[in-house]
Amino acid sequence: MAGFNKVVTSYDEALAGLTDDMTLMVGGFGLCGIPENLIIKMRDLGVKGLTCISNNAGVDDFGLGLLLQKKQISRIYASYVGENALFEQQMLSGELDVILTPQGTLAEKIRAGGAGIPAFFTATGYGTPVADGKETREIDGRHYVLEPSLTADFALIKAWKADTMGNLIFRNTAMNFNPMMATAGKITVVEVEEIVPAGELDPNFIHTPGIYVDRVIKGTFEKRIEQRTVREG
């Protein structure tokens, strides 16, 4: 690599430095917009004791479910984990520490982490178990909960296109948590469908500027669909 060229050509390079007990952010909503090959590589590396920050936990045999199968995750921050039976088992047996976090609060914790804001007040969760043990404050007659922000050792995200300098464009609802996570990782690794030379992406339409991105790798994707719902054509 030289200068601003962020492109790597192997998954070993993409995840170099990732070790046991690290904290990772993993992009995606359900199975949409997940860095599927980076997850498979983590499974193959066998790293353990991971803390994962991700809206969901995949399904049994895809996405983060692959890491649950091998008991590589010890703690997870997520908003909804309904699609994963392994998850349920490991949660009930105490092998997995689950910190259920409201989806908007999770998104904002990550955004704040990447933006250098250590914590913020939100009305979300006030008066619920989510607020247990947290500082609260009344501001202009409303009650708010203090939520600390989140950062990670690695952010593993999925984008549609990148240029060689790491400028990113996401596609449709595969954007979801990916742009914020890109800002909140000490090392941000992006898996994309296409890499173009610097200068080819219109700067007006870049979602994530390359300053947040450390490594870019081109992958091929299964893009599994969780709920294929169609109407008569």
Partner: peptide
């Protein structure tokens, strides 16, 4: 596969639709 709703069902976009991150959404 890149276009789903919050129930993870495949959907389409209506005329005038816009797309954004989860932080923007919330």
């Amino acid at each position: 596969a890149d276009l789903i709703n919050a129930g993870k069902q495949t959907v389409t976009m209506a005329t005038g639709a816009s797309l954004f991150s989860s932080a923007e959404s919330f």
